[in-house]
Computed example of a mutant assay.
Amino acid sequence: MSPSPVHQHRITGAAQLAGIAGQPVAHSLSPVIHNAWLQAGNIDGAYMPFAPRDAAGFETLVAAGRAGLVQGLNVTAPFKEQAFASADEASAAARATGSANILVFEDGRVRADSSDGVGVFYALAEQAPELALKGAVVVLLGAGGAARAGAGALIEAGAEIRILNRSRERAEALAADLGPAVSVADEAALPEADLVINALSVSPAIDLSALKPGAVVMDMTYKPVVTPFLAAARARGLTTVDGLAMLIGQATPSFTALFRRPPPPLDLRALLLAHLGETA
């Protein structure tokens, strides 16, 4: 009996083109996710990485979108705030933080949105379902783009944010942008934290023994899936939430916006863990 033919993902002249823009971008798992969905749904389209050298390069990419060469982009560091500023209209989620990780191009216009908050909620609901965000104290480690992107949704959910960052000046600037639910803190805030989120690209040097037993620890990075920070939290018996869950959570609204349809069913976590060669 001959084996079943392997399904080939066909791309034609009518293909829909979207992608992700960042610098660097080679590490991104978004092309793996979106192209897997396109193949699973037999959708005529492609999702490509774009690495503009600088702000001028990103501006050129947005102009290409306005000209109809690409129908949408995910946006990652360092272009999220520039993406928001380049848009003709923006969702409430994007306006809340002044940043966007989704740009949709249609008839020469640019619409900005942010699914980072959706990603945070998805990850917390999946891996820390008992955590109630209303009234929760969230200690956010870092004051860069990742911290900004995640904070808006947490504020909307009723959480109080304490920003802990090496540069107090940057933390104060972010707090001023985000409003009265956000303040600048130091490690003295850790004992009252219900949730600690690492929004740095490196493992933070904080004393996890200061956390209360019911605290939840989340890391926005996902390489490795169980980062040293999460491993240390697990060793203390704390509930942990990984960045891979956040990535998966923000991908669904991204695909729906970029390809104008919901993604087909697919076990993304299994797919990505296999891609990464991990078993977490």
Rank of each mutant, 00 (worst) to 15 (best):
V6N: 12
H7I: 14
T12E: 07
T12Q: 09
Q16I: 14
L17W: 13
A18Y: 07
G19H: 01
I20P: 08
A21H: 02
G22P: 09
P24N: 02
S30K: 00
I33H: 03
H34E: 00
H34W: 01
A36I: 09
A36N: 05
W37Q: 10
A40D: 02
N42K: 14
D44P: 12
Y47V: 10
Y47R: 00
P49W: 01
R53W: 03
D54M: 07
A55R: 12
A55P: 11
G57M: 05
G57I: 11
F58G: 10
T60Y: 03
G65D: 06
G68Y: 07
V70D: 02
V70I: 15
V70E: 02
V70G: 05
G72K: 09
G72V: 11
T76V: 10
P78E: 09
P78N: 02
P78R: 07
F79S: 11
A85Y: 07
S86Y: 00
A90N: 08
A94L: 11
A94H: 04
A96C: 04
T97C: 15
A100I: 09
N101V: 07
V104S: 13
V104M: 11
R111C: 08
D113V: 04
D116T: 07
F121Q: 15
F121I: 15
F121T: 13
F121H: 15
Y122E: 13
A123S: 08
L124T: 02
A125T: 12
A125L: 00
Q127E: 13
Q127A: 12
P129L: 02
P129N: 08
E130F: 02
L131D: 01
L133A: 09
G135K: 00
A136W: 02
V137F: 04
L140S: 03
G145V: 05
G145I: 06
G145F: 00
G150N: 10
A153H: 09
A157N: 10
I163M: 04
N165Y: 04
R168G: 14
R168H: 13
R170S: 14
E172G: 06
A173E: 14
L174P: 09
A175Y: 03
D177S: 15
L178W: 04
P180C: 06
V182E: 04
V182S: 05
V184I: 10
D186N: 13
A189P: 12
A189V: 08
L195P: 11
I197Q: 02
N198D: 09
N198G: 11
S203W: 06
S203I: 12
A205M: 12
I206Y: 05
D207L: 06
L208Q: 05
S209F: 06
A210D: 01
A210S: 13
K212D: 03
P213G: 01
P213R: 01
V216W: 00
M218W: 00
Y222A: 07
K223A: 15
V226Q: 15
V226C: 12
T227K: 02
L230M: 02
A232N: 10
A233K: 03
R234I: 01
A235N: 09
R236V: 05
G237T: 05
L238P: 10
L238T: 04
D242M: 04
L244D: 03
A245D: 09
L247P: 10
F255L: 11
T256P: 03
R261Q: 15
P264L: 07
P265G: 11
L266F: 06
L268E: 08
R269F: 02
A270S: 14
L272P: 11
T279G: 01
T279N: 13
A280L: 05
